[in-house]
């Protein structure tokens, strides 16, 4: 046989080697998914990986059974639309592993909506807001005067209170006091 054919055998051996390696390396179920050949080529086990990610934001109804008092009291206020976890943090592992959630009482949290921006094409322009630089003492948290669960400005002005009107639901009252 002529030496001219040798490079061909080398090339064939390489192709065979790659095909053998591929048959071991690529998972058996790797293939065309529901979305067709062009966009659906994948390992189906990976779909399970994404489905099994832990859910962290449980939704306000998750809070209802233990914190019924706060859950119902906020319903009749403009803040009813805000899910509990937006301010109280995600309810992951609460109460089993994490006994207390960290409540975000930072002034910046309230300013997300209530820093006044008079934008004509956004509902932001309709929200009652303040200028963060001039409204009261910028170093004091909003919850010092305002109750986030009952943001009633009329009551606040009448009482002229400068102490926390925002009271936490006492832990002992849970269940009994919730009015379930």
């Amino acid at each position: 046989m002529s030496h001219v054919w040798r490079p061909l055998f080398v090339a064939l051996a390489l192709v065979a080697g790659i095909l053998i390696f591929r048959s071991f390396y690529v998972p058996k179920d790797f293939g065309i998914g529901e979305a067709g050949y062009m966009y659906g080529w994948h390992n189906p086990n990976n779909e399970k990986f994404w489905k099994d990610i832990k859910v962290k934001y449980k939704g306000s109804t998750y809070c209802k059974d233990c914190h019924g008092k706060n859950f119902t009291s906020i319903r009749n206020t403009p803040h009813a639309i805000i899910p509990c976890e937006n301010c109280h943090g995600p309810g992951t592992d609460h109460p089993e592993k994490i006994a207390k959630l960290t409540i975000d009482i930072n002034r910046l949290l309230c300013l997300r909506c209530h820093a006044v921006l008079k934008y004509p094409n956004s509902d932001r322009g309709k929200i009652r807001g303040i200028d963060p630089a001039t409204h009261q003492d910028p170093n004091v948290e909003c919850v010092t005067c305002h109750d986030p669960h009952n943001p009633n400005l009329g009551a606040l002005k009448k009482s002229q209170q400068r102490f926390p009107v925002y009271e936490r639901e006492p832990m002992g009252a849970q269940g009994k006091g919730s009015g379930r």
Partner: peptide, 22 residues
């Protein structure tokens, strides 16, 4: 998905594009 050279990103039957981290 079209540019992925190894098939690590794909479209599921319900229309979501996922990435295979492995």
């Amino acid at each position: 998905v079209q540019v992925c050279p190894v098939g690590a990103t794909y479209k599921t039957g319900d229309g979501v594009v996922l990435v295979d981290r492995s």
